[in-house]
Design a protein around this nucleic acid. Structure first.
Length: 216
DNA sequence: AACTCGGGGCA
DNA sequence: TGCCCAGAGTT
């Protein structure tokens, strides 16, 4: 695992959270919006969104359909608009308008699941965490850090065991970049992957190509 | 465990 | 055009 992280670190030395934000509240909104779409798409929307809405009260000051329209370029926008207004109400009523720093409290917010809470605590509050999204899950399974039928919680536990706590957040960022830009769901770059010699799945994927070579 | 939300990106 | 996607909630 240490070797793998070092290699990925060389591939993506600047791995970081790609969602544009300038405070915990904006990060929470951005991660919530990022469900099932790329960070790039989210950033296009939040560029204007964060100019118009700066506080929880701002999101409650407009009708639901206006907020829906403001995030319409993102998928699942009806759910997300509702989540944002309900979440804003709770922040005002129960947390003095601030995003709570506790993981438990975060996951109770509408639209905020385990993955979003992990991203918020690690990127906004400096608490070590490994957020397991589909990229981290896929990469972890391909590299053999988790079993194929493990759920996201199981994958998270296994990764945390393999990596010292102070490296959890960095590990999360590296695995995300590796999965997003190299070890992609479709057409992963196995032929040029520096981890091929320690990746069973990659070797398996490369076999047909080797067989074709042998035929020639 | 399966289903739903959904426009954007990519083949 | 058709397919999949940096999730979370409901049934």
């Amino acid at each position: 695992m240490t070797h793998v992280l070092a290699v990925i670190g060389d591939m993506f030395p600047d791995a970081h959270c790609e969602l544009n934000h300038s405070n915990p509240f904006e990060l929470t909104i951005a991660v919530l919006l990022s469900a099932q779409c790329t960070d790039e798409t989210v950033n296009k929307v939040t560029a204007d969104l964060f100019q118009k809405y700066r506080t929880p009260a701002d999101y409650l000051a407009v009708p639901l359909d206006e907020l829906e329209n403001d995030i319409k370029r993102i998928g699942l926008y009806r759910n997300k608009a509702k989540f944002i207004q309900n979440l804003s109400r709770i922040l005002i009523d129960e947390y003095d308008g601030e995003v709570p720093r506790e993981h438990e409290a975060l996951t109770k917010l509408p639209g905020v699941g385990r993955k979003t809470a992990n991203v918020v605590v690690s990127n906004a509050f400096g608490v070590p965490a490994i957020a397991v999204d589909t990229h981290v899950e896929r990469v972890s399974k391909r590299l053999g850090f988790a079993k194929a039928d493990d759920g996201v919680l199981e994958v998270e536990k296994k990764l945390m065991k393999l990596v010292p706590r102070e490296l959890w957040t960095e590990t999360h960022h590296r695995l995300i970049f590796f999965g997003r830009y190299h070890c992609k769901a479709q057409n992963p770059k196995c032929p040029v992957c520096p981890l091929l010699d320690c990746c069973k799945e990659g070797q398996q994927r490369m076999k047909p190509a080797l067989n074709r070579k042998a035929m020639n």
